[in-house]
Simulated assay, not measured.
Amino acid sequence: MSIYDIAVKTISGTEQTLAEYKGHVLLIVNTASKCGLTPQYKGLQELYERYREKGLVVLGFPCNQFAGQEPGSEEQIAEFCDRNYGVTFPLFAKIDVNGPATHPLYQYLKGHAPTGNGEDIEWNFAKFLVDKNGQVYKRIDPRTQPEELAADIEALLNT
Rank of each mutant, 00 (worst) to 15 (best):
Y48W: 12
Q107T: 14
V57R: 04
G116M: 13
K110L: 15
A155E: 03
E75L: 06
T159S: 08
Q65F: 15
A150E: 09
I28T: 06
P39Q: 09
R83F: 11
E122A: 14
Q145N: 11
T17I: 08
T31A: 03
E53F: 12
I28Y: 07
G23K: 13
Y41P: 05
I6F: 07
T144Q: 11
P114I: 10
L56M: 07
D141H: 05
Q76I: 14
E122K: 15
P146G: 11
V130P: 00
A126W: 09
P114S: 06
V57S: 06
I121G: 15
K9D: 14
T144P: 06
T10Y: 02
I6Q: 10
D120Q: 10
V87W: 08
N30H: 09
G13D: 03
N124Y: 05
D82Y: 10
E46S: 11
G134P: 03
R50N: 04
E122C: 11
N158W: 02
I11E: 01
V130E: 02
N30R: 08
A32K: 03
F89C: 02
A32R: 10
I3N: 01
L59N: 06
Q135K: 06
G72H: 05
F89E: 05
F66T: 11
K127Q: 10
N117K: 12
R83H: 11
K9R: 15
V25T: 00
Q107F: 13
L109S: 11
Q45F: 12
D5V: 09
V130K: 01
S73E: 12
I6W: 10
E75Y: 08
H112F: 13
A93T: 09
E53Y: 02
S12N: 07
Q16L: 03
T115F: 05
L156C: 01
E20M: 05
E154Y: 01
E122S: 13
D120A: 08
K132M: 08
L129V: 10
L26R: 02
I11N: 12
C35D: 14
G13C: 05
L27F: 02
V97S: 04
F92E: 08
A93M: 11
P90R: 13
N30S: 12
